[in-house]
Simulated assay, not measured.
Amino acid sequence: MALPLVSLSGRLILSPPTERDDPHFVALRSHPETRQYIPRQFFPDNFTVEAARARRESRASDPAIVDFSIRSKDGDEYLGAIGIFHVDEAMKSCESGVAISPAAFRTGVATEAFHAVMRYAFETRGLHRVVFHTAASNVRMRGLLDGAGAKLEGILREVWPANEGDGFSDACVYSILAQEWTETVKSRLEERISRL
């Protein structure tokens, strides 16, 4: 599967981020709905277009990271970001994460983008294991992972500094193995996409 990726329905294009995506990425990461689940040490309050550009350029040169911007089929509408990172070819593993524009919530964008990237990770890259970390309070992401058949490996208690006030927040660790992708996860996601 060559880049860019096309979603199963054909309505989304996932391609490496470019300069035109930087302001959209800043808006996505600065949105209160997104920020409530991302610890400040990952994206500080003053995240700028210049910081987004530097991040994009740095990550593009790292072979252990493959980032994608999610856009509508015609390329006009920016819908989010997704990717794989900490790719370890020797261990055949990586991590993955997704952030969807709040305007695209409940439209199936997350499901289709997730399917395309998991297909890339398992079928194109030949990885064995994909791991996800998400805030325990992130009901949308947990619903996507649970519904797809990802396995909850555990909860990391008070692992991330809380964004509001003092204290720490919990994070959930999920994973999908190549066999689970083939036997369960792929078909579950495709069934959900067919109902959209």
Rank of each mutant, 00 (worst) to 15 (best):
F105P: 03
I70L: 04
F114W: 14
A150G: 09
F47R: 05
T48G: 07
T124I: 08
R20H: 12
A113Q: 03
F25Q: 13
F42T: 06
D74I: 10
G165E: 05
P23I: 11
V130Q: 02
V130S: 03
G80W: 00
W181F: 11
I84S: 03
A116C: 04
R188T: 06
K151P: 00
P161N: 10
R40I: 01
P63T: 06
H31V: 04
A99N: 12
S93G: 10
E180A: 13
R59I: 08
A178C: 07
P63E: 06
E19K: 11
G167L: 08
A162G: 14
L79V: 03
R71V: 12
Y120S: 06
F168C: 12
F114P: 00
G108F: 00
H128R: 10
L8N: 06
D74Q: 10
R11S: 12
G83V: 04
F105A: 01
T134M: 14
R142V: 07
A52N: 11
G165P: 05
F43Y: 14
L28D: 04
T134L: 15
M118N: 11
D67V: 05
I65Q: 09
E164F: 07
Y37N: 11
R59C: 01
R55L: 13
E164L: 11
G147I: 10
R29L: 14
A99G: 04
G143R: 01
T18S: 13
S194R: 14
A64W: 01
D88R: 06
E50M: 09
R53V: 14
R106N: 14
A2H: 11
D67P: 10
R20D: 14
A2K: 10
P4L: 09
P17G: 10
A52E: 11
F25Y: 12
A110Q: 04
V6K: 13
V131L: 11
E164P: 00
S187M: 08
P17Q: 10
A52L: 05
N46I: 03
I193D: 05
K186I: 01
S15W: 02
S69Y: 08
P23V: 12
I38A: 00
I70M: 05
T48Q: 09
A81L: 08
L144Y: 09
L5W: 03
F68Q: 07
A135R: 00
V49C: 03
V139I: 14
